[in-house]
Design a binder for these strands. Structure first.
Lengths: 169, 169
DNA sequence: TAAGATTGATATATCAATCTTC
DNA sequence: GAAGATTGATATATCAATCTTA
């Protein structure tokens, strides 16, 4: 496994190895978490986070746009996702009485029961896959590093655009 | 943003914050890299890695199963992916003359040209998003941490199954 | 039979356009 | 008009079943 730049190397050896390790985790970890949740609770990683986020909100309620920001997902993705969850009876859609432009997702009894049932297994997976083998100082540095990368992406990354309407194209 | 365990907390505060940061990167970084490549070279992150891996092999050739292991993807995913690349003239499929069970993917001239053109932009994105803001010791620790997580997943994670054929279900 | 690969159906994500309410 | 949301078309991923060759 080398750098994949077609021969040219703009990362030095140490950077390259670090990047390969990070790259592996990027591909492996979401898949592993998805599988655990899908197998044990029939929901995806992202669905779990949406349901769990709702479970911690007053009335089990949040706007779709809030959920989109929270999960770093596009609004359209959340809208489709909520539609699926609604079809399964786990959430309800309700226009915000205050301002009709917003749509609230509201957790149902079934939805709450599902998150509660799913949480222990998920947290255990996170602990097992991420934390169990990391010592204190490594964790602290990991935290820093991740924050650094996250903010680099926010600053000059090609994140999804802030939901524009083009109107003329 | 809290732990999303429906009230119960099995991660302490420090772990929780670390997990949130990692979680963000898991969602943001692949998307950012995908976008850069898609915008500048019309290929996905995974497609890039497959083409680039081929570009570094003798004859630009590798077995599909090798590519699957290399990219941590399921074989079926690679097969579909190679089919798409083949349709675009970037690779060719060729049964292994040595052992007909294997299929080789062979990089074409066009494929090689595309990787070469795409590489600088991709490497620059990796540098900008991952490395520019990390100092030496942080990188070293990041490397360790990622290796730890990757091996934890390999050992007791729910990775994709090693390609069984059920035959009776 | 087993390993590698392919295929087709289904699920989910992405993109662009549109719709609604303020 | 602008922000939030929805929709439908397309792209890609996942899953289970099948096919091929050794």
């Amino acid at each position: 496994v080398t750098l994949y730049t077609g021969g040219m190397t703009w990362l030095n050896d140490e950077e390259l190895q670090t990047w390969q390790a990070l790259h592996s985790v990027l591909l492996l970890l979401p898949t592993a978490l998805d599988r655990q949740l899908q197998r044990d609770s029939k929901i995806s990683y992202l669905e779990y986070y949406v349901l769990a986020a709702l479970s911690e909100r007053p009335e089990g309620t949040a706007r779709l746009s809030y959920l989109a920001v929270l999960t770093n997902a596009e609004l359209s993705r959340i809208s489709h996702l909520i539609a699926r969850l609604e079809k399964r009876g786990l959430v309800q859609r309700r226009p915000d009485p205050t301002d009709g432009r917003y749509t609230n997702a509201v957790l149902t009894e079934e939805g709450l029961a599902l998150v509660r049932a799913a949480a222990p297994g998920h947290v255990e997976a996170v602990r097992r896959l991420v934390f169990d083998d990391l010592d204190e100082p490594t964790r602290r540095t990991l935290h820093q590093a991740m924050n650094g990368i996250a903010s680099a992406i926010c600053e000059h990354g090609d994140g999804h655009p802030p939901a524009r309407s083009p109107k003329n194209a």
